[in-house]
Computed example of a mutant assay.
Amino acid sequence: MTGRPGRRAVVTAALGVPLLAAGCSASTTGGDDAPQGPAPERIAYGPHEAQFAELTRPTGASRGVVVVLHGGFWLAEYDVSLARPLAADLVRRGWTALAVEYRRVGDGGGVPATLDDVSTALDLLADRDLADGPVVTLGHSAGGQLAVWAAARTRLERWRGAQVVPTHVVSQAGVLDLRTAADEDLGGGAVPGFLGGTPQERPEAYAWADPVALAPVEAPVWCVHGPDDGTVPIAQSQAYVRAALAAGGAATLIEVPGDHLDQVDTGSDAWARTVAVLDGL
């Protein structure tokens, strides 16, 4: 993605790489002269300023719902603006999109608060006659962890009453093996920060949140990941797929070109591969 002027707006990132600031580049938004799609409906699901979601419906019949969960190592400085270009592109392709904001570390989040928010936001679909077709959770990086977790949450006592369970899951360069991620210090301590400590200090939090520990889920899972990803290594997705298949689940690894941020560039080959997964549902 380098060498394409105007393709990204860059902010300083704790991830150790520049992060895409959504809504600022012609390639992801279509530019200022591009036709504007349907306006999103902002829905608050709690009293905190970060407890809201943006629901956008296509102009014609909907193919189903994609719940877009942004990444940023669960940190407060990264917000739903990262999800908006993906949601807008999905709406143009005929999907209803729910872009979810949630409490993050540094702003009231972490385990279990962030997980509570994702579960509650997903259940918004139950009250809007939108959960009859496919319900896909799609998440990038830390959002990949949340996307897979959402499909497993009804097995956990705290979230047993959740109403809407994903029918399909797509993880884009997801952080899916939290114990290994903590041991390898991915995100500079982001994983213990999210979970409130190391696996030894907070074993119950890892049991709640770690996709590898919760594998398999009932929904099929696609792990879209690049071998050249220097932020979240592809070994994270490989570990999840191995665990899910060994436990009798349905999981597929799709290797894509590019770096970590190509996954959230709607002009990239990596995004095209994700779209192809959705087209096949």
Results as ranks from 00 to 15, higher is better:
233 P>L: 03
261 L>T: 15
211 P>A: 11
260 H>M: 05
208 W>T: 15
216 P>M: 07
218 E>G: 15
255 E>I: 08
263 Q>E: 08
223 C>T: 09
210 D>I: 01
239 A>P: 09
270 A>D: 03
272 A>I: 11
240 Y>W: 05
231 T>Q: 03
214 L>Y: 02
269 D>V: 15
233 P>T: 08
267 G>S: 13
250 A>L: 15
218 E>D: 15
266 T>D: 10
219 A>E: 01
263 Q>S: 13
205 A>R: 06
255 E>P: 02
253 L>C: 01
242 R>K: 14
269 D>Y: 14
210 D>S: 09
210 D>L: 02
247 A>R: 14
254 I>C: 08
266 T>V: 11
253 L>E: 01
218 E>L: 11
204 E>V: 12
237 S>E: 07
226 G>L: 09
214 L>M: 03
220 P>A: 06
220 P>V: 08
204 E>P: 09
240 Y>F: 11
254 I>F: 10
253 L>A: 04
207 A>D: 10
239 A>D: 14
251 A>T: 00
220 P>I: 07
249 G>T: 05
239 A>E: 13
271 W>E: 12
205 A>I: 04
267 G>I: 14
238 Q>Y: 13
231 T>I: 05
208 W>H: 14
241 V>R: 00
269 D>P: 10
205 A>H: 08
245 L>V: 14
272 A>P: 11
214 L>W: 00
267 G>Q: 14
212 V>L: 01
206 Y>L: 04
210 D>C: 06
225 H>W: 05
263 Q>N: 09
240 Y>N: 07
262 D>I: 08
266 T>A: 06
233 P>E: 06
223 C>I: 12
213 A>L: 09
233 P>H: 03
228 D>N: 07
220 P>C: 09
262 D>W: 11
248 G>Q: 05
203 P>L: 01
208 W>S: 14
218 E>K: 10
256 V>E: 03
271 W>Y: 15
223 C>H: 04
216 P>F: 04
229 D>G: 06
213 A>V: 05
206 Y>T: 06
228 D>H: 12
220 P>W: 07
260 H>L: 06
251 A>M: 02
254 I>R: 07
224 V>S: 04
218 E>M: 12
237 S>D: 05
230 G>Y: 12
231 T>S: 07
240 Y>K: 04
204 E>M: 13
272 A>M: 13
205 A>N: 13
257 P>Y: 08
259 D>M: 11
208 W>P: 14
247 A>Q: 12
272 A>L: 14
248 G>W: 08
226 G>H: 08
230 G>M: 09
267 G>E: 12
253 L>N: 04
211 P>M: 10
222 W>K: 01
240 Y>C: 05
205 A>Y: 05
232 V>P: 00
258 G>F: 00
229 D>K: 00
242 R>I: 08
241 V>Q: 00
249 G>L: 03
203 P>A: 01
214 L>R: 10
212 V>R: 03
267 G>H: 14
205 A>S: 14
252 T>N: 02
231 T>N: 11
269 D>M: 11
214 L>I: 00
243 A>T: 03
